[in-house]
């Protein structure tokens, strides 16, 4: 600021009127171009999903005969037949399996990670900082590393192919992110609050359950939505650890991929069903979604 003080006034005076007029014209032109570019880009991001929706609302014969964009001239061809057909197929069971896997995982991750996060943030124990660095390191371990070992463990324990097996795998791999997020949030709780509670002789469990956990709601909401979406959308873990009777939607739909052409009706409507709940959650809780994402990236 100080360096610019001397020459600035003259330059400002000389340049201001010209810049005002020419600048405004350039800005208008520029903003027009920007508007058009952004509309085109927005369409690029919107059209693929729109295509899926329209395809899912037309019969296989119509889809094979013409592109989905002809819907604008022939809206009469729309039908919910594909969705009605889904009800009688294996899709319904897979939808419930997805729910049965996702909900317990999310609850378990939140509970277990909140306890660990509280311990890391507000308790002293030997090796605490090193242990937490290990958690930071585990943040990006590829799940491929655990597929073979855990499959053989599950074989021994008799839970291979079951929903509890899938849930436990998800919980374990959700924990590093969850602990990281919550610990960093809990650290920001004013120390005086906790100390007052400890002075009053409250047990650690009571402090955790009645002070820390309620105060952590914003971070827990972020974590919850993230964890929910992550498990809801998973395919790899399901492919390995869920057998056909326990398979979630992703695995069920994957099994229909081989005959893509003839299964477009099931695949499009099933894929759209699978993304309705994530999209609703996303639009309802986008604030938490974004916050969780920001807090999760190590800065």
């Amino acid at each position: 600021m100080t360096t610019a003080t001397v020459p600035a006034p003259s330059r400002l005076e000389a340049g201001a009127p010209r810049r005002g007029l020419a600048g405004r014209i350039v800005d208008r032109l520029g903003s027009g171009v920007v508007q058009v570019v952004m509309v085109v880009l927005g369409l690029f991001w919107l059209v693929p999903t729109l295509g899926l929706l329209v395809v899912s609302l037309r019969t296989t014969q119509v889809n094979n005969a013409e592109g989905w964009w002809t819907v604008f001239t022939k809206p009469a061809e729309l039908t919910i037949q594909n969705y009605a057909n889904l009800l009688g197929s294996g899709f319904t069971a897979s939808f419930w399996n997805t729910v049965l896997i996702t909900v317990p995982t999310t609850i378990l991750v939140i509970g277990i990670a909140a306890m660990a996060g509280y311990a890391f943030a507000w308790m002293d124990f030997p090796g605490r900082d090193t242990t937490f660095l290990v958690v930071v390191g585990l943040l990006i371990v590829p799940i491929q590393i655990a597929l073979i070992p855990v499959a053989s463990l599950y074989g021994g324990a008799g839970i291979f192919g079951t929903i509890p097996g899938v849930v436990l795998f998800h919980v374990a791999f959700g924990l590093p992110f969850a602990i990281f997020l919550l610990r960093n949030f809990f650290v920001g709780i004013p120390a005086s609050l906790l100390e007052a509670a400890r002075m009053d002789g409250a047990s650690e469990w009571k402090i955790f359950a009645q002070v820390v956990f309620p105060l952590g709601k914003p971070a827990i909401a972020s974590l919850g939505i993230f964890q929910f979406l992550w498990v809801w959308n998973d395919m790899l873990i399901a492919l390995v650890f869920a057998d056909t009777g326990n398979q979630p939607m992703t695995k069920y739909l994957q099994s229909q991929m081989r005959q893509f052409g003839s299964n477009v009706d099931i695949l499009s409507s099933g894929a759209f069903m699978s993304l309705v709940i994530p999209l609703v959650l996303f639009f309802a809780f986008q604030r938490y979604f974004v916050q969780g994402m920001m807090a999760g990236s190590v800065k």
Binding site: G42, L52, L229, S274, L281, F282
Partner: peptide, 11 residues
């Protein structure tokens, strides 16, 4: 533009 983040990679 952000919406696809919520969609499964399968979908």
């Amino acid at each position: 533009v952000f919406m696809p983040m919520a969609v499964s990679l399968m979908a």
